[in-house]
Design a protein around this nucleic acid. Structure first.
Lengths: 262, 262
DNA sequence: CTTACCCACTCGTCTATACGAGTATGCGTG
DNA sequence: CACGCATACTCGTATAGACGAGTGGGTAAG
């Protein structure tokens, strides 16, 4: 038997009115914060913690569960509980849809990812005609039907985001936009070719915990929220020509905006 | 005894390989999604669920704990478990620091909140001179010391955000900025009076689960992430004159940005 | 009528136990 | 040497029981 990894941990304070499982979580959290356990390190096993602290297994599991909810640890069945690795984050700049970034054959996602040294993939592409949800409908000026383009994005095999673009059907039907691959520059280039010169985007950002479906799609660890971004594109006539609804793994992204001070 | 509120729930599928506590959580989640339980409604008590499904209490608690992690439910000691109320969200527009919003006596937060019919409060105001963290230091061009202005914001008695502004000390010392109340228009107005005409802001947005300290400060329910926003203000000379580090309760905010399509 | 207490109900914490299922390792067999 | 299996470890799921602590309502005493 190897020396107890929990040698890094102290004892409980029986006089404290703080719950035992919280004290255990506190100790582990502090050990992680101070770097005594590092990213990807295995924490002491449940059995080791049971022996070290002299408590029951449920108490230990309760403590570990707390750390997972905080996003500090992830458990792997059959292996152990590990300090959650912090994956490299993808930085989304607010100028990422500027026209000058649109002149290439590849998608913005692909170009950016390759520049950052990652292996990009796009997945589960699906193009459908649909009746819009009330929210999407309102943003697009209440079209009867919309074209929906869904896809999932992965970096180095890890799903990081999935998105659906909605366009009024009267605008997108029988155009390259309705094709799985809309061609170089993506749907924004096509929209401009069709006379809808893009004027500006509105973006709305929320953060929340993922639904079970989102947990599956993005293979999210517990304790990882999602960023929900809804972007509306307007043409020079002030018409909303596209709404893009994106759900991102929050631990994979930082959004960057530059705002004028005027 | 009132009729079992769990009359709204079905039975378990013993042939399914889905864990019992997940099946129970699924049923409750579906009932919430379909509106059979509404915001603020009390879910069936642990005892009722134990009786209804014929399982042990820990299994039921496991299911309820899942819903809390997802942000769908909150438990209140001695009262019950409730469908989490969705508080009204505060919309942060990207032009909120425009000069034209700065000409009043009150803070942007106060004006905005009152316009929305809420009762704003600012709390825990603290102004200190400090050695900056490496991150803040790098953003401000490595000053030796900084002035830190901390405060907490509440709406209708609920804490929604807390923020710290950092300014290079050589710039802020012995100015109204070092006063608890920097005067009408806030520190941005003072900076401009001092010759630092503001040019633009950079904002970086992340989402993550709160630390225990943040849970206390913002009185967060479990299953509610935080939005972490770091704004850097630059003057016309390109100098970073302020960094504002803000942590917001994610269920209280939607951030809105308008971007040009150029 | 009002106050104070008790009780019933809620969730919170903790123990002890059992079995199942995924993983890794090493050993023995072919 | 290679493969497969046994085994020991990991976490996952579930049971049964106990006591504590916060809440609210009803009842009994003042």
């Amino acid at each position: 038997m190897p020396p107890l990894a929990s040698g890094l941990l102290g004892a409980l304070d029986p006089t404290s009115d703080r719950a035992v499982f919280r004290q255990i979580a506190d100790q582990l959290r502090e050990a992680i914060d101070k770097g005594r356990f590092r990213e990807g390190d295995k924490l002491p096993s449940e059995t080791e913690l049971v022996d070290h602290f002299g408590v029951s297994r449920m108490t230990v599991r309760n403590a570990l569960s707390l750390l997972q909810q905080e996003g500090l640890a992830v458990s792997e069945h059959g292996k152990g509980v590990f300090v959650r690795p912090r994956p490299p984050v993808r930085r989304l700049a607010s100028d990422r849809f500027a026209r000058r970034h649109r002149e290439q054959g590849k998608s913005a996602f692909t170009v950016e990812a390759e520049a950052a040294g990652s292996r990009p993939e796009v997945d589960g592409l699906e193009v459908k005609e649909e009746r819009p949800s009330p929210d999407i409908s309102a943003r697009l000026g209440s079209p009867r039907k919309v074209l929906a383009r869904r896809r999932r994005y992965l970096l180095d095999g890890r799903p990081v985001e999935f998105a659906t673009s909605y366009l009024p059907l009267d605008l997108a039907r029988n155009t390259p936009i309705a094709q799985p691959n809309p061609g170089p520059g993506g749907i924004y280039a096509r929209l401009e070719e069709m006379g809808h010169r893009l004027d500006h985007f509105d973006e709305e950002i929320r953060a929340r915990m993922p639904t079970p479906a989102e947990v599956r799609t993005l293979r999210l660890a517990s304790g990882v929220p999602v960023i929900h971004l809804v972007r509306t594109a307007y043409d020079a006539d002030g018409r909303a020509v596209e709404v893009c609804d994106t759900v991102m793994a929050a631990d994979a992204y930082v959004l960057a905006y530059q705002l004028p001070a005027t």
